[in-house]
Amino acid sequence: MSRSARDVAASVGAVFTGVFDQLAAWRAPVEHLIDGAPEVRPAALDTLVAELVLPRLTEPQPLLVGAGFIADGEIVRGRDVHFAWWLGPLDANPVLGSTTEPTRLDLTTRGYTEYLRDFRALEWYRIPATTSDAHVTGPYVDHLCTCDYILTMTMPVHAVHPAGGGAPGGTRMVGVIGADVSVRRLESELLAGFLDVTAPLALVNEEGRVVLSTEPALQVGQLADLDGAGEPCPGTPLRVLVDPAPSGSIRIIR
């Protein structure tokens, strides 16, 4: 019982910082490719992104269940939105089946097209577009790809050339680079550390949604009361609550 809530929050921050550092490392060559020409060939983008992300999706016990680059249409020839997104090997996935190799996310069916018509309004795109900063979306059940409870980390990608209304010499956002982490996998990284603290703890997102909890009465997926400030996890919108309780603002009427 040697650790404090602050230590635990720092260890959460370290895991997420690791992912964001990876996203930043992927972003540099993608931005370089985009800056090389006013319009990028989809195949060139796909090849580059696959080379970058596949090693992290196929390593032993991968932290990431999916990763890639989502471009808004302007920079990709002939596309409205372009997904260069790969999923790691999946277990018994009800939508995509079981896979032992990474799979490219296939967006050719109409359902996806309709869902993604408004992709700019979806949190994983909208927030980085608004803040020009990295963002953590979730936890949420991803019904598009993994059918799992996940967190999505996204980081804006910018281009310097002025086409499409950006100020000459300025930059504009042309997409996001991102990765998905399953809550289950995150738990395996973090639970032992949380259990090293005597007091019950909960890791929650900005709205109080529980990612991990050592308080049995407050479970993953529930909303926690955010009255206590808790310990912010550095570099993330998450925090660790001490002696957490289910949200009191939400009165369950039976």
């Binding site: 936890p139 059918c147 997926g221």
Partner: peptide
């Protein structure tokens, strides 16, 4: 049906709904 299932925060319920 699926949008409501997602709000349950349960991956199992989402999978069962899809099935």
């Amino acid at each position: 049906f699926l949008e409501v299932a997602v709000l349950s925060q349960s991956a199992r319920l989402v999978r069962e709904q899809i099935r």
